[in-house]
């Protein structure tokens, strides 16, 4: 399977990180089980996936790879 271009990976990853961090922040203002679940599955998971994608893109795009 061919991976997307590294710039695409970085962009998608960065977007997921931004979304995840904002979701994580917003969930903290909801006191209750819903806020906690949104934090874990919305904030935490989206941020982690985004960070992994972005780092993969950065590693493939780093000067050492050129």
């Amino acid at each position: 399977m061919k991976l997307p271009q590294s710039t695409t990976l970085i962009r998608v990853g960065a977007l997921c990180v931004i979304l995840g961090e904002l979701i994580a922040l917003a969930s903290q203002f909801e006191v209750g089980a819903t806020g906690f679940v949104v934090f874990i599955f919305g904030g935490g998971t989206v941020t982690a996936i985004g960070a992994a994608l972005a780092l993969l893109g950065v590693l493939r795009n780093s000067p050492a790879q050129s």
């Binding site: 970085i10 962009r11 990853g13 960065a14 931004i18 961090e21 893109g57 950065v58 795009n61 050129s66």
Partner: peptide, 15 residues
């Protein structure tokens, strides 16, 4: 968010 946005708009900075 600002740092991640920087990478979103300028992915070439990784190089």
């Amino acid at each position: 968010v600002l740092l991640a946005a920087d990478f979103f708009f300028r992915p070439a900075r990784a190089r």
